[in-house]
Design a protein around this nucleic acid. Structure first.
Length: 187
DNA sequence: CAGTGGATGCTCT
DNA sequence: GAGCATCCACTGT
């Protein structure tokens, strides 16, 4: 059985943690799958929510590592981040896509009938499929309802620029499982 | 296919 | 009151 990811794993630079998350398993109440795409955001990054300091919305990104930072995007979607680095650093990895492996029926109930490759292929989609909302903002990742397990083997990485941002567009801080059909977009 | 625009709510200026 | 770390439906090839 793969090792559980604890606070110590996340208490490092997001630029070290993010690529190691590819291939890890993320479950919420037993529903989820294998992480195939993440993006790194650090505090010196104009595209990061932590760039302009702590606010009510971003407080959990400034909290201890190994916790969730959940925010609403475009008024409609929820997005899940895994908080990295020790305070006062504020870094996080945005989980952008999963390969669904567990609880497919529940995901389809939440998102409607879809092929497996479309259930979690985007940050808003996977939060809907896993039932992630603001309720989980600030919750520890090593306790229920979360279950987070390390990858069993090193994963072939794809790297590229991040998606949907207007600042620091050129930084290659998007990581994916090379060749996976479950990505939000091809690299 | 690719490209466009609407929905929607909350934060910050 | 603008602007979003998005998604989907709709258009036109």
């Amino acid at each position: 059985m793969a090792e559980r990811l604890t606070r110590e794993f996340f208490a490092r630079s997001v630029h070290d943690v993010a690529p190691e998350l590819i291939g890890a398993t993320l479950l919420v109440d037993g529903v989820g799958g294998v992480i195939v795409e993440v993006e790194a955001y650090d505090q010196d990054d104009p595209a990061s929510h932590s760039f302009r300091g702590s606010t009510a919305r971003t407080a959990s990104m400034f909290g201890p590592p190994g916790h969730a930072y959940v925010y609403r995007s475009y008024g409609i979607h929820w997005c899940l981040n895994l908080v990295c680095a020790e305070a006062p650093r504020a870094e996080a990895a945005l989980v952008r896509a999963l390969e669904p492996t567990s609880g497919l029926e529940e995901m389809r109930e939440r998102r409607g009938l879809e092929p497996a490759r479309a259930l979690c292929s985007g940050p808003g989609k996977l939060c809907q499929a896993l039932g992630i909302t603001r309720v989980l903002d600030g919750c520890p990742l090593d306790e229920p309802p979360f279950e987070l397990r390390a990858r069993e083997e090193e994963a072939p990485l794809a790297v590229g620029p991040r998606i949907g941002i207007t600042q620091a567009v050129e930084q290659p801080w998007r990581y994916g499982l090379a060749g996976s059909p479950f990505l939000s977009r091809r690299f």
